[in-house]
């Protein structure tokens, strides 16, 4: 972390007490205005080589140029703002697509429409000591996928490439 802005702005009678993390990739050598993720106070900062050269100075009424990536409140039970909370933290552009964040995707067909075996749970091997039969017979082991495959074939959704 290049530096943080520990916001002490008094809001509603008590200090905001939020740590705004200034990630080095964006803030290492940067001059501009950034906001506190909690109370929205705008601060002017000028960072050189990851060190705070000017600021943070409050700039009431001005708009921030860039938000911090992440913020938390370590003294108050670690509530936090993950990247990409609208109006508070900056979205992390490399964030995986939503389908990468949940449970594993149970794909039944490859992109050309032929069946794959990639879902769970799988039937046990039926062999000794984890011995697996080398030919996976889709018709026998997953009749419903086989039926779906036949449908796809009829509709012309199965391609060779």
């Amino acid at each position: 972390m290049a530096d943080v802005i520990w916001c002490k702005k008094v809001v509603g009678g008590k200090p905001c007490n939020t740590v705004n993390y200034l990630d080095p990739y964006c803030f290492w050598n940067w001059e501009g205005k950034t906001n506190c993720a909690e109370c929205g106070t705008v601060y002017y900062i000028y960072m050189i080589q990851g060190h705070m050269y000017r600021g943070p100075d409050e700039k009431p009424g001005e708009k921030p140029d860039m938000s911090p990536l992440y913020a938390d409140k370590p003294l108050e039970g670690y509530t936090y703002y993950l990247p990409g909370v609208k109006g508070r933290t900056r979205p992390y552009e490399c964030l995986p697509r939503h389908i990468y964040l949940g449970r594993a995707d149970m794909v039944k067909f490859s992109i050309r429409g032929k069946p794959v075996r990639g879902w769970r749970p799988q039937p046990p091997s039926g062999g000794l000591a984890g011995q697996f039969p080398y030919k996976w017979d889709i018709k026998k082991l997953s009749p419903e996928v086989w039926a779906e495959y036949q449908e796809k074939r009829k509709k012309g959704e199965v391609k060779e490439w």
């Binding site: 000028y46 050189i48 080589q49 060190h51 050269y53 000017r54």
Partner: peptide, 16 residues
């Protein structure tokens, strides 16, 4: 007093 330094002078105080 870093308020009196130019950015270059300030950089020199970091990179000793």
């Amino acid at each position: 007093d870093k308020a009196k330094l130019t950015p270059e002078e300030y950089l020199a105080t970091i990179l000793v």
